[in-house]
């Protein structure tokens, strides 16, 4: 098994791929909440991906990703036996796992993969978990049984009503909170609007909430500062100070804007015709 070889892969949902990659040193070290940076090939960007699982014996880590951009699309093309050019980790601070009591775990979309190791860690620490998983529709849900097995309660919400609650995760969470059930801690991981809405809701209930952020990054080791986010009025680097932060302190508006910084360039990569024209024009951009 060579370094960074893809050992197994499967489609968890349409456009959501699970990949198990040989990285024994990372497998030995990685803890819940941490991430890796990988580069698919020589021309590739460095992209951060959260580690969903690891296997000490096999020396592998598992990443789950949704094909949202050019690099994730290239990664999804890689097959078992292919080798990823570069992989660095584990990066970021691990989740602070403590015994809080009753913990609400809210995950949306591919965030379900990232909350899974935290669900494991918080269950092991003796917390009583209420897990709430949400996706656009039923076929985009995964890890449901695994998370159910570790949770006292499990709720599902889908935008189209194909499974569980028909509606937004925040509406379902709001119902749970209004039912008068007390929670001591909340973890919310998912798309930025979901985390923003969830933290707005939990703030009303004075429920401490941790979110996991995935801003644009280059090196992932504190060198570039591209991942800076404002938390409680202070500038933090998500790669070395995070990626998890107090969700009630995060400036989500700023983060959302920063994440769109290279939107046009991404479109250019996703449209090969434009790429071809650019290369004809000399491979440079003015």
């Amino acid at each position: 098994m060579s370094r960074f070889e893809i050992v197994s892969r499967r489609l968890l949902a349409p456009t959501v791929t699970l990949m198990e990659i040989a990285a024994p040193r990372v497998a030995r070290k990685v803890k819940a909440g941490q991430f890796i940076i990988l580069r698919v090939d020589e021309q590739g960007e460095r992209v951060p991906l959260t580690v969903a699982e690891h296997d000490l014996e096999k020396g592998t880590i598992t990443v789950v990703f949704q094909e949202v951009g050019y690099t994730t699309r290239r990664l999804a093309e890689k097959q078992v036996g292919d080798v990823i050019s570069d992989l660095l980790g584990p990066l970021g601070r691990p989740t602070e796992v403590k015994h809080y009591g009753r913990v609400l775990c809210a995950a949306g979309g591919v965030g379900i993969a990232f909350i899974y190791p935290e669900v494991k860690a918080f269950a092991e620490a003796g917390n009583e978990l209420t897990s709430v998983l949400a996706a656009r529709s039923k076929d985009l849900l995964f890890f449901v049984d695994e998370i159910r097995a570790l949770s006292k309660e499990l709720h599902i919400a889908t935008d189209d009503g194909s499974a569980g609650y028909h509606g937004l995760i925040t509406d379902l969470l709001s119902q749970l909170l209004e039912r008068g059930r007390k929670y001591d801690y909340c973890i919310a991981i998912g798309p930025l609007p979901m985390m923003r809405a969830t933290t707005a809701l939990t703030r009303e209930f004075d429920l401490p909430t941790t979110v996991s952020l995935d801003p644009i990054m280059v090196d992932g080791t504190g060198m570039c500062g591209g991942c800076r986010v404002t938390v409680g009025g202070e500038v933090k680097f998500a790669c070395v100070d995070g990626p998890e932060f107090d969700g009630h302190q995060v400036d989500f508006d700023e983060l959302a804007k920063r994440k769109r910084a290279f939107f046009e360039e991404e479109q250019c990569l996703l449209n090969p015709e434009i790429v071809r024209l650019e290369q004809q024009a000399g491979g440079k951009r003015g």
Binding site: G44, R46, Y70, V218, E265, I274, V275, G283
Partner: peptide, 9 residues
Amino acid sequence: FPEYHTPIR
């Protein structure tokens, strides 16, 4: 860019 996939603007 775009031969290499990391953008700069």
